[in-house]
Amino acid sequence: MWRDALLVAAKDLRVEARSRVATNQVAPFAALVLVLFAFALDPDRGVLGRAAAGLFWLAVLFSALLAVQRSFALEAHDDARDGLRLSGLDPAGIFLGKAGAVAAQLAVLELLLTGGIAVLYGSDLRGAVILAVTAVAATVGLAAAGTVYGVIAAGLRVRETLLPLLILPVVAPVLLAATKAWDAGLSGASGEGWPWVRLLAVFATVYVGFGVLAFGALLEET
């Protein structure tokens, strides 16, 4: 299972390295979202600084949607999906690989966005430990939940419009918890943030577990 996961993740990341869709489109989009938030909230450092954690995670959420869509758009052409299905790879491994590739791209994106909020919103990056741990747990949760819904929506003609409706309410707890944990980290009160990290860990565990169990059934359908 783990070997299959590595194979699939390596394939997705190789496609990304050659096509540069995430680098050239998703990352600039995320940066643009940060700038647009500043327009919407009036470029007042006070408001932006206080809302920085929430805006950061909202930007990550929107980018995650794009990353998930991209991840399954890769399989849409040339019967790649059938190829994947017939490859003999363990479905749980395929799930972990696809989610892992999405998580890796999101992690890089989060690093860029962290620089973004530090520069644009003037956030102090205190409590680096809790910021990093939160980011890892939230990213795993987002990638797992996103991949499960991504494969549900992948074969549909209405996937672009249906996917946000399916994913966004489900990952609402990630937004809530990650925002609170980052708030605590950015304001230097890391201790208050740890219960939220636990919630993120629960979310990630539930969706990774669900994906491992259900992905085979979801991939089988045409």
């Binding site: 939940a145 707890p173 918890a177 629960v202 539930v206 669900f210």
Partner: peptide, 23 residues
């Protein structure tokens, strides 16, 4: 199959959402 799995996913999410907004 698709809707059954989506329904269960939504259902496991409800306690998590509830817990997170309570906190």
């Amino acid at each position: 199959r698709r809707s059954a799995i989506a329904a269960l996913l939504a259902f496991v999410d409800v306690p998590i959402v509830h817990q997170s907004v309570v906190w």
